[in-house]
Design a protein around this nucleic acid. Structure first.
Length: 262
DNA sequence: ATGGTCGCGTAGCGA
């Protein structure tokens, strides 16, 4: 069977509810990982998605962050928050096993720290958060399952993934240490669905609200779906739903969708 | 042009 796994930073689920529901009705992803909910779990519009046929798991937070996993199939939540945080209470990591009819699929909704300004404490937090993700990913890869780690990584992987590399040289999303840490994550054995399905230059997933970034196509590619070997073997396609950015009251990110033959 | 836009929450921060 074919299933689709989507990731979307909605930049407030309350501000984006109608836009999100509309897209869900059109795209009907089997699994949807959401980021930047900007609300607590109790305030998440759970019923609206249940009415569309989805099970819902939420790790919410007031004002900032917040991640969710929605699935047409039953969800078993396996981990909420990355271990090793020493009091880190940011809602940025939600891991679950989806009981798809053919086989279980492990899915993680991730919202990586932005890290700006760099250098500084926020950048240190980003890099240490990535170290914690690397540690957890090692454990997950040992399971040898179909695994998708999907979301807003706040990482521009290469100079092909930004309109103006020079302008972003000192940004936390593009600095060498950030990109090296991202490569270290991939080198554990994860495959980006984007690259596996052909990749390409200047395929953006985010355009700033400011300075006419969308109109000028001043974008960056920072939303990624990373697959275990068992997942990468089954990848059949990857799509960036760029049209969402042109609609009324859009998120600054657009959905990305991986299609797997499981 | 040394800003520019959103969302939250109702000032100023985060992105």
């Amino acid at each position: 069977m074919t299933i689709t796994i989507a990731a979307w930073n909605v930049n407030s689920i309350k501000a984006r509810l109608e836009r999100t529901l509309e897209w869900v009705r059109e795209a009907r992803p089997d699994v949807l990982c959401l980021q930047e909910l900007k609300c607590e779990e109790a305030a998440f519009p759970r019923e609206a998605f249940e009415d569309e046929g989805y099970n819902v798991a939420v790790d919410g937070q007031k004002t900032y962050n917040g991640v969710a996993v929605l699935s047409k199939f039953p969800i078993e939540e396996t981990l909420r928050g990355l271990p090793g945080g020493d009091g880190d209470d940011h809602a940025r990591y939600l891991e679950a096993v989806i009981a798809a009819p053919s086989r279980p699929i492990r899915v993680v909704s991730v919202y990586m720290p932005n890290g700006n300004p760099a250098p500084g404490p926020k950048y240190d937090y980003k890099l240490s958060w990535m170290d914690r993700l690397i540690t957890r990913t090692r454990e997950l890869l040992d399971y040898e399952e179909v695994l998708a780690i999907a979301g807003d990584y706040n990482i521009i992987p290469t100079a092909d993934d930004v309109h103006d590399p020079a302008a972003w040289a000192d940004d936390a999303l593009f600095r060498p240490e950030s990109r090296a840490k991202y490569r270290a994550l991939l080198n554990l054995g994860l495959t980006p669905a984007f690259e596996q399905s052909g990749g390409g230059a200047h395929q953006y997933t985010f355009w700033d609200y400011q300075a006419g970034a969308w109109q000028r196509n001043n974008g960056i590619r920072i939303d990624h779906i990373l697959l275990s070997p068992e997942g990468a073997d089954r990848l059949r396609g990857f799509t960036i739903h760029k049209d969402e950015r042109a609609k009324e009251k859009p998120s600054d990110h657009v959905p990305v969708v991986a299609e797997l033959d499981v």
